[in-house]
């Protein structure tokens, strides 16, 4: 499996957790929803960590760009972290409508972010970083 495939697979894996959590909330199965959200947030954080601590710094030094695309990706990671926090709060108060609203917002933000990474950033990283597979495997949690 190539480095791009590994990272894309992580996106899809997170998607599965996201869908499991949403399904549990729609069925008002709060226990299952809490468990699914915890796993989803951990998977997301693991993936962010790989990118922010291994992939992005390597890309920045190879391309000489610190204020370019990786800055935007980090900002979007932060937006997603905030939404996940809000979702956890909504889940704690068992507020299904609030949760599903945040869930939908996260879905769109997450998927347009994934689209940018999979279509543009990862292929450019693969071009610039011959050791990309080794870089991401050092800290692969998902």
């Amino acid at each position: 499996m190539s480095a791009i495939d590994t990272l894309t697979h992580q996106h899809r894996h997170c998607d599965e957790g996201f869908a499991a959590c949403e399904a549990a909330v729609r069925q008002q199965d709060w226990e299952a929803a809490r468990a699914a959200l915890t796993v989803f947030c951990q998977d997301m954080e693991g993936h962010f960590t790989i990118e922010e601590q291994a992939l992005f710094p390597a890309f920045e030094s190879a391309s000489g760009q610190r204020m370019g695309p990786t800055r935007i990706m980090r900002m979007e990671h932060q937006d997603m972290r905030e939404l996940m926090e809000d979702m956890q709060e909504a889940l704690l108060s068992q507020h299904a409508d609030a949760f599903l609203g945040l869930n939908d917002t996260l879905l769109i933000l997450m998927q347009q972010h994934n689209m940018k990474e999979e279509n543009i950033l990862y292929p450019m990283c693969a071009e610039l970083l011959p050791d990309m597979a080794a870089l991401i495997s050092q800290d692969c949690h998902v």
Binding site: E82, D86, D97, A98, G101, D104, T105, I108
Partner: peptide, 28 residues
Amino acid sequence: LPFLVWLQLKLAGLPRRQLPATHDFLAE
């Protein structure tokens, strides 16, 4: 449509707690 306005408000600097979710713009 809801994401366009959500993103615009976010970029305009609307504080996190005041930013509606996309469903608040267009409900399912």
